[in-house]
Design a protein around this nucleic acid. Structure first.
Lengths: 206, 206
DNA sequence: TTCACAATGTGATTTTTTTCACAAGACAAT
DNA sequence: ATTGTCTTGTGAAAAAAATCACATTGTGAA
């Protein structure tokens, strides 16, 4: 029901709202939020309307209230548990990135097919042998996975994830995973991003 | 003129076309390409139409011809030179990711403010001290940068990039860069991606 | 030959997303 | 009090993107 783009922006709003809160700001105007996400104030107001929030023309929106609403929307005032599969360069970078504990994302375990990596604790999350993935996922009721295995192994690993009960996959492999429609896949495709960037930044019009 | 989404998909098509070519495939149907990018055949045909390509109902599209057209479209049958700024975990992962030489992206140099890292060669690209960035960029006419510095340094580094003549920035910092509109910025925001994923994969409707 | 099939190319339509634009309300300043 | 200035909330319009649907056309089987 909520537009996909709105969902994406809500995540961003929340991040900036928390920063604002930490700085002691208690209310914000739509145009301030707009600045933070490269959008327009009308868009922000629309998004917040979809959320069911409202502000006042005088004080704008209440920071705390907004955060609370977005937390509720994402239904995760608490942290979301996620697993990571494939401890290569990118995998490790992500482990490091999320170890801070500052975000809502908690990588509770990582998996790899290289026995050398097993049992090591990298940035707070213990590495398991890939064979244990299924058990871990079902026992801990994990729904989301970050997939960082090489392209050649991506599909088969994704199949394992699916059969284990994973419902959402953030896929870093430059491969289009074939999975049933009820599994939600989001691709992070850096090569594509750069090519797009090069295209649009070389004058070809925006 | 060409829709942004089409540009993104063209990059993907090319990747799969090259794989297909390597496997000896000489022509493809729109529905095959569609499968590879999670799209529909009509969409593929539209995209290719925008490109100015045409196929035949019998043989579909000619793989070589398509690749040639897309190369021309991106105007880079040759490799694109890019720099990377910030050699932290993500930076290193990207250096490794692109060292293969298989892609169109060539990271020609990297920069960091940590003198310890300077002069090391990581995955083919030499690391320079950040102060040398401006000179390097203008001398080598670099137009595109990958920004992987910590959030706290992102904006000031982006300013330097802009003043050096960079036109496109792939930004990994969880910060919205404020730059003039003629600089094209593409954000890679993993936290946001995961939050979106969690939202949509937990049944909240697609 | 004739028929059924499969795939392209593309108007037309629908859906999704963004933007416009303005009434309404509170405040500050005069 | 009156005026000018902000900003919200939101219909209405526009723009962007995806989808539908169908005429068209080789090809191979009957």
């Amino acid at each position: 029901m909520t537009p996909e783009k709105t969902v994406a922006r809500l995540s961003l709003y929340r991040r900036f709202l928390k920063l604002a809160k930490d700085e002691g700001t208690s209310n914000v105007y739509s145009h301030q939020l707009a600045d933070m996400v490269r959008g327009t104030s009308a868009q922000v107001r629309r998004d917040l309307m979809a959320l069911g929030c409202s502000g006042s023309p005088q004080k704008g929106y209440d920071v705390n209230e907004l955060i609370k609403h977005i937390d509720e929307f994402f239904n995760t005032s608490e942290v979301v548990d996620v697993i990571l599969v494939g401890i290569g360069n990118i995998g490790r970078a992500l482990l490091s990135y999320f170890k801070s504990g500052k975000s809502h994302i908690n990588i509770v375990a990582s998996f790899d097919s290289d026995r050398q990596k097993v049992d090591r604790v990298i940035n707070n999350s213990k590495c398991y042998y890939i064979e244990e993935l299924s058990k871990f996922v079902s026992e801990n009721n994990i729904k989301t996975a970050i997939l960082c295995v090489p392209a050649s192994e991506a599909q088969q690993t994704a199949d394992v994830l699916m059969h284990s009960g994973i419902k959402g996959i953030l896929n870093f492999a430059p491969v289009r995973l074939k999975l049933p429609a009820n599994i939600f896949v989001e691709d992070v495709d850096i090569t594509m991003n750069i090519e797009k960037l090069v295209y649009f930044s070389s004058g070809k019009r925006k």
